[in-house]
């Protein structure tokens, strides 16, 4: 088969055409998939929120800075018939065994934890991934506890949380993430509602 001769002009021209065609195709595909990607992300967020707070019909989102600094947390206020039924907080920790863990923590308006689900983690399969609700019911122990009276630390660190066998670091990290959510929640939301209640009395 005769290979085409390489001259400066046809090299430049064919490379240009190939890259132009490629960029055009990719731009088209990108535009076609941009919306489904956004939808998939939104569906994932909505699903995580609906898992940790009671049934709701309206959401309001606000960002708050945690007291210890670092990235701000997204608070999702869930309302049913205009009454606040729960707050889902998108929280994080960098203390995981393999780096960052993100989780969605749900609170009742009175400050108790309603439920916790992980969003993303890179923990060891079979050990640290027990924070995943589909893998183990370990994270169910956070249900209904009040961080005011329960210490969010594993028992080894004089806390009240059962660690995961052979993955204490992961359990510690998860507690850290939840504590960060609670501290921010207490700072920005709980203090306000308590003040309002005080005024009513």
């Amino acid at each position: 088969m005769a290979k085409k001769e390489s001259t400066f002009l046809n090299m430049v021209l064919s490379l240009f055409l190939v890259t132009a065609a490629a960029s055009f195709t990719l731009a088209t595909v990108y535009n076609l998939t941009a919306e489904p990607i956004a939808q998939a992300r939104e569906a994932k967020r909505q699903f995580a929120i609906s898992q940790v707070v009671p049934e709701f019909d309206r959401l309001e989102s606000k960002m708050f800075l945690p007291p210890d600094g670092g990235d701000s947390l997204e608070f999702n206020f869930a309302y049913l018939n205009n009454e606040l039924v729960g707050i889902a907080v998108n929280t994080w920790t960098n203390r995981g065994y393999s780096g960052r863990i993100t989780a969605m923590v749900g609170f009742y308006p009175d400050g108790r934890i309603s439920d916790v689900v992980h969003l993303q983690h890179k923990e060891t399969p079979g050990l640290g991934d027990k924070i995943d609700k589909s893998k183990s019911d370990w994270s169910d122990q956070f249900k209904d506890i009040d961080p005011e009276t329960t210490t969010l630390k594993v028992r080894k660190d004089n806390g009240d949380i059962d660690a995961i066998t052979a993955a204490t670091i992961t359990a510690r990290a998860y507690c850290d993430a939840i504590q960060r959510a609670y501290d921010t929640f207490a700072d920005h939301v709980l203090s306000q509602t308590k003040q309002e209640e005080g005024l009513e009395l």
């Binding site: 088969m1 005769a2 290979k3 085409k4 001769e5 390489s6 001259t7 046809n10 090299m11 064919s14 490379l15 190939v18």
Partner: peptide, 10 residues
């Protein structure tokens, strides 16, 4: 498809 349209060097 494009093998015969592309100069060998690129």
């Amino acid at each position: 498809i494009i093998k015969n349209l592309i100069p060998n060097k690129v």
